[in-house]
């Protein structure tokens, strides 16, 4: 499903003319199979989020290869990346990243709109998904009228609406209390089991990582302790 080979990336920090190079990804290699939940854990600044953003195509790596469903995406242009994301990835963010001016329904249907799906099909698909994540009653609400847990459910529904094979989650429970965190983790586990979705979860929380089939640990730009089967 996802194969990453010799992935390198360097950031330039500091004022222009006095820049300092910081290598954040130092030759990352790993492979993720379909239907897996994989957690990448690590401290803040270890490079785990950069790794996710590189896989997502938000930034281009300096070198290396990223194969998703046998497609090399590391050299994609911005336009190609966007089109590929729309078809292959769903995103769950720490801060939910919902559009405040759009209702729950509109937020969830957004990826379908981008794909040019007709209103009738959108309505049907969103209604099904709302039922799945238990948000039918708040379909017309705006994000600021929902609790953190509900907002993250909306975010998960939006990530799944186009039936992407892979969900990339960056600290999915980072903004939630422990009870809500458990609810969201249960939902992720359920969706993985029922829909055979592949989850790549970036987290610094060991409890979140514990739901993963496999855990990778990121330390100073190096993926260590990989291939560890925890369940």
């Amino acid at each position: 499903m996802i194969t990453v080979k010799s992935l390198h990336h360097t950031f330039s920090i500091g004022k222009k003319g006095h820049e300092r190079k910081v290598e954040v990804l130092k030759g990352i290699n790993f492979h993720i199979q379909t239907g897996e939940i994989v957690a990448i854990v690590g401290k803040s600044g270890s490079g785990k989020s950069t790794l996710l953003q590189t896989i997502a195509g938000f930034m281009k790596p300096d070198s290396g290869s990223i194969l998703v469903n046998n497609t090399e995406i590391a050299g994609f242009t911005e336009k190609q990346s966007a089109a590929f994301r729309l078809d292959h990835f769903g995103f769950i963010f720490q801060n939910f990243q919902l559009l405040p001016s759009q209702t729950v329904f509109e937020n969830i249907e957004l990826p379908l709109k981008l794909k040019g799906v007709s209103r009738a099909i959108r309505e049907k698909k969103v209604a099904e998904l709302l039922k799945k994540v238990g948000l039918t009653s708040v379909a017309d609400h705006y994000p600021n009228e929902l609790s953190g847990g509900q907002q993250q459910r909306v975010s998960i529904a939006r990530a799944m609406i186009t039936n992407p094979p892979i969900i990339l989650a960056d600290e999915p429970t980072g903004s939630l209390d422990s009870q809500t965190e458990q609810e969201i983790l249960s939902l992720i586990r359920l969706l993985n089991k029922n829909e055979n979705l592949t989850f790549v979860i970036i987290t610094h929380d060991e409890e979140v990582a514990s739901i993963a089939d496999r855990q990778f640990r990121m330390t100073d730009g190096v993926l260590v302790g990989g291939m560890l089967h925890v369940i």
């Binding site: 336009k79 994301r85 981008l114």
Partner: peptide
């Protein structure tokens, strides 16, 4: 800006 970021993240092309 944030909204544009979200749109791009979920797959909106720059031309759109």
């Amino acid at each position: 800006t944030r909204e544009i970021g979200v749109l791009k993240a979920i797959g909106a092309s720059p031309s759109l």
